[in-house]
């Protein structure tokens, strides 16, 4: 089994870990956004509460969610390893300054990733940790059962403009991270072709704009309109 370790510690193996975990997280974002859009429904939070109850109790979702945490962890750890190794491999920087031909995001993935990690911790603190580990959650009776009123928790957080600004900053970081990460994940997998690459790049750009906008709508809508 030495070969697995050898592979996963090789430069391409480590990049593959970034690519695969990244792609999983990209997929997760879509699912997460679709579910969260139920917050926008004008039903006093019924749909969202039902959705979070389902997510909180379905055994399959529970497994996937553990996987998700693991992948975030792996992606972050591997990302930090890459960052420090690469920094070491480069050595000193140039004194001369040239017009940059590459994107800012591509060279600052570690910075963006760190911001995102902080954002995720904040986000988990706001919701996941409270749902899972605290008993002070408000309850609501829906369809004859008492379930957590997650909608109310979300509304409370999004009534504070400071949190909204924090979320928006996080989403800008997400957009930039995705802008490079989406196409990059495919390149690492070895998918680069004159025909397909422009499509992948366009999809990546679209994705990196639409997903963060989708997420951003929620707090803004809840703060300004509801």
């Amino acid at each position: 089994m030495k070969w697995i370790l050898q592979f996963l510690t090789s430069s391409i193996g480590q990049k593959l870990i970034m690519s695969l975990t990244g792609l999983f997280l990209i997929l997760f974002l879509t699912v997460h956004l679709i579910g969260n859009l139920s917050l926008l429904k004008s039903d006093g939070g019924a749909a969202f509460n039902a959705y979070s109850d389902f997510m909180g109790h379905n055994p399959l979702i529970q497994i996937i969610s553990k996987g998700n945490f693991f992948f975030i962890f792996l992606h972050a750890i591997q990302g930090f390893v890459l960052y420090f190794k690469n920094k070491g491999a480069k050595g000193s920087k140039y004194a001369g300054k040239a017009k940059d031909k590459t994107s800012w995001a591509s060279k600052n993935m570690a910075l963006l990733g760190t911001l995102l990690l902080a954002f995720i911790l904040m986000h988990l603190g706001h919701f996941y940790v409270r749902f899972k580990f605290f008993n002070d959650m408000p309850m609501v009776n829906q369809d004859g059962a008492d379930i957590l009123n997650t909608y109310q928790t979300v509304s409370e957080v999004f009534s504070n403009p400071i949190w909204i600004i924090c979320y928006l900053i996080g989403l800008v970081a997400l957009a930039l991270h995705l802008k490079h990460g989406f196409a990059s994940a495919f390149q690492t997998l070895g998918i680069n072709h004159k025909k397909y690459t422009p499509i992948i790049k366009a999809l990546g750009t679209g994705y990196s704009i639409l997903i963060p906008i989708g997420f951003a709508i929620i707090p803004l809508y809840m703060y300004f309109i509801k």
Binding site: S10, S11, I12, Q14, K15, L82, K85, N86, G88, A89, K90, K101, T102, S103, S106, K107, M109, H180, A183, S184, Q187, T188
Partner: peptide, 18 residues
């Protein structure tokens, strides 16, 4: 070749394109 490249201490490609 990749093994040797790694051994030489070159960094890892992050698809910057520079």
């Amino acid at each position: 070749m990749v093994a040797q490249m790694d051994k030489e201490g070159f960094g890892m490609c992050s698809n910057v394109g520079a």
